[in-house]
């Protein structure tokens, strides 16, 4: 067991972890934050994507012990985040989820697209979403939802 000190959803956490425990398992099993889903555990599917030090990160291939000093934000921490609030509404309106398994990771990526690439067009959105697999929606709703939020924010910037 190793000691690791990090911030999880705004709270300072000191925990003993088995080095082989990846960040997603640490959050789910030791912190009981089950909003982060796990699919492939090899970095491919994107289900486990969350924020580490402000940027989307695969929590399945990063070990918790390697997160010393890191600021981790899982989906549970975004209830009052303005961009996430817009995205949630757009995801509902555009049918951007069905079973919801990919959704926490999708939202992390979607938020990154909206904040990092304010001019993203449909092609760019699709490219950026290529690292998050969704078996339900066929992506049309996802792309529309993200475009909608980008439009809303562009209109807001003009007004």
């Amino acid at each position: 067991m190793k000691q690791v000190n990090l911030t999880v959803n705004g709270k300072a956490v000191s925990a003993l972890v088995e080095p082989r425990t990846h960040l997603a398992d640490f959050l789910r099993e030791q912190r009981l934050l089950t909003g982060t889903n796990i699919g492939c555990e090899q970095g491919v599917c994107g289900a486990c994507t969350l924020m580490v030090d402000g940027v989307p990160t695969r929590s399945c291939i990063v070990y918790a012990v390697a997160c010393e000093g890191a600021e981790v934000r899982s989906i549970e921490d975004f209830d009052h985040d303005p961009v996430m609030t817009q995205l949630r509404a757009a995801f509902s309106a555009e049918h951007a989820l069905q079973c919801g398994y990919c959704t926490p990771g999708m939202l992390a990526t979607a938020r990154d697209i909206v904040t990092r690439l304010p001019d993203a067009d449909e092609e760019r959105i699709r490219q950026e979403l290529s690292g998050n697999l969704c078996r339900c929606t066929g992506y049309v709703g996802l792309v529309r939802a993200i475009s909608r939020v980008l439009d809303e924010r562009r209109n807001l910037a003009v007004a």
Binding site: G43, G46, T49, V52, V55, P56, T57, R58, V62, A108, T109, D112, E128, S130, G131, N132
Partner: peptide, 9 residues
């Protein structure tokens, strides 16, 4: 290379 979440690290 890969996807943004992978490129971040």
């Amino acid at each position: 290379i890969a996807y943004r979440a992978v490129r971040n690290r």
